[in-house]
Nucleic acid binder design. Structure first.
Length: 490
RNA sequence: GGCCCCGUCGUUCAGCGGUUAGGACGUCGCCCUCUCACGGCGAAGGCACGAGUUCGAUUCUCGUCGGGGCUACCA
């Protein structure tokens, strides 16, 4: 049994983006790898940014990717509650303790005063930051502020004025920061809610978190967090700051530069195992020349040592490649299960397909599997299989290219009548027919094969012609060829 | 501006003082072939720059340049 306890601590502010899934996945992997626990904690301390369905989106997203947690909202655990807004008294208690020990102080500044202060600093070319004006108020001043503004005071951390903080980050190595560059950060907001700075430290300690995986954007405030832990008399957890994933524009990957919400990827036809494989490699490496890893592989290989300290630029093409790889690995039954909803959404299959339809879909997908890069491409790839014989569309270019050749009508007519007379109608027998006709007319294979393909599918690309013909069946092929014959000019 | 982090093909990841600098995606070419795709083979393409240290630097140190993050009563 390991003592590793990692937590994923998102804020319920809307769509959990794909970077969040990467963090959660790495937490989960590390817990699985070490036999530790994975904890979910909701950091809802900013009621302004919170969305109504925020928590549900987080829960849904984690479930979508199979990232089950051992403790958290809904399932509880030894350190419940796991929602910060339900832990307010806990934070208040520690804030009181810090104030009593002179390690934090009440600050009465109004937002306007702070804005003015920053404005002045800017004007004078000084680095912006709280000037600690309320840190050393005398008794009379404090009493005065307390009586006039006491009800909306904030509590700030009294950063030691001298010294420095040194710590070992699991990813970035030794980090040293001088205390004097640190701010007297707000611990408790005037609305009674704690800031991340306080709440996360208190909870990480109380929940016995051993390793904190979080974005690199937190690196600058890590020393502050360590100072807070120490002020409370606690040993800080091990920090592993993760390189931020970047978009194609080399900016933090987000909605603005192409990142989709975690739940959007499956909707667009991406397989969870492909997305996870891709995400695992966004800033982590097993230090070998390999790309394809199953989730069990990753559980076995994932370690702190492989986490890189430079930000990867997310490449959508690579994700697409992963997806194609995983689609091809799918069993036919699994592929059909997962693709059916896309076919239904496109109106190509009804809501309750019968066994015969399901079998046909399986047959069709077997032919299209190797050319699908996402599940969402299935309708466009396979519509001609599923649409009625007089309904599927003929590609205009295909028609002008192949139906105008001299003699094409005669060749097609002969194929059609031979097809009609065939005893068994399958890929082998129809190919034999077509080859024979090619021979009889003494033309190049394409002069027969391509027009037949366009006739039965309406297009020039797709699975092998004879497999297509077999899947379609004789009746549909004959009707389609008749329809095509009506369009032929050559 | 200040503080912090980073710098190997277009992208990504190996390399950890001596290598023809390797794999993958993408690109291009060839093969397979009824098309498309899959698959196979091959090609182009990189150590940001400058000083040091060293017999020898992609690898160690410093500087320059470049990129990123932070600088809220948001996380």
């Amino acid at each position: 049994m390991s003592n590793v306890r990692v937590r994923f601590a998102p804020s319920p502010t809307g769509a959990l983006h794909i970077g969040g899934i990467r963090t959660a996945f790495w937490d989960w992997l590390y817990a699985k790898h070490t036999g530790g626990k994975f904890i979910l904690r909701i950091e809802d301390t900013d009621k302004n940014r919170e969305t109504a369905d925020g928590v549900q989106v987080i829960l849904d997203s984690l479930r979508e990717y199979g990232l089950d947690f051992d403790e958290g909202p809904g399932i509880g655990g030894p350190h419940a509650p796991y929602v910060q807004s339900e832990r307010l008294p806990i934070y208040h208690k520690f804030v009181e303790q810090l104030i009593a020990e002179g390690k934090a102080y009440r600050a009465y500044d109004t937002p306007e005063e702070l804005a003015r202060m920053r404005e002045n600093q800017q004007k004078r070319g000084l680095p912006p930051g709280y000037d600690r004006r309320h840190r050393h108020l005398n008794e009379a001043e404090r009493a005065e502020y307390e009586s006039t503004r006491g009800s909306h005071a904030a509590v700030r951390f009294a950063v030691p004025l001298e010294g420095k903080v040194t710590f070992q980050d699991a990813v970035y190595g030794e980090i040293t920061v001088e205390n004097r560059v640190l701010e007297d950060a707000i611990l408790l907001k005037s609305d009674g809610y704690p800031t991340y700075h306080l709440a996360a430290q208190v909870d990480d300690h109380l929940m016995e978190i051993s390793h904190v995986f979080r974005g690199e954007e937190w690196l600058p405030s890590a020393p502050l967090h360590i100072l807070i832990h120490r002020a409370l008399g606690w040993e800080p957890p091990i920090y592993a700051h993760l390189p931020v994933m970047m978009g194609p524009d080399k900016k933090k990957f987000g909605k603005r530069n192409g990142a989709l919400g975690a739940l959007e990827y499956p909707k667009q036809g991406y397989l969870r195992e492909a997305t996870l494989n891709f995400l695992a490699l966004q800033g982590w490496s097993a230090k070998e020349e390999r790309d394809l890893y199953s989730v069990p592989d990753l559980i076995e290989k994932f370690d702190l040592d492989g986490i890189l300290n430079r930000s990867p630029i997310s490449d959508p093409e690579k994700l697409l490649w992963f997806n194609g790889q995983y689609i091809r690995q799918l069993s036919l039954a699994d592929l059909a299960d997962r693709t059916l909803p896309f076919l239904q959404d496109a109106g190509l299959v009804g809501q309750n397909p019968d066994a015969e339809t399901l079998a046909y879909i399986g047959q069709v997908l077997a032919l299209e599997q190797e050319r699908m890069k996402t599940l969402a491409e299935a309708p466009a790839l396979a519509d001609f299989f599923l649409l009625a014989d007089d309904e599927f569309l003929f590609d205009e270019k295909a028609v002008t290219k192949w139906f105008a050749h001299p003699g094409v009508g005669n060749r097609l007519r002969r194929v059609r009548s031979r097809f009609a007379a065939l005893e068994t109608f399958d890929a082998a027998s129809t190919e034999e027919v077509v080859r024979k006709v090619i021979e009889e007319f003494a033309v190049k294979g394409g002069e027969v094969i391509h027009p037949v393909r366009v006739a039965v599918s309406g297009r020039t690309t797709g699975p092998g012609l004879f497999e297509t013909i077999e899947a379609l069946g004789r009746d549909r092929c004959l009707r389609r060829m008749d329809r095509a014959l009506g369009m032929i000019t050559g």
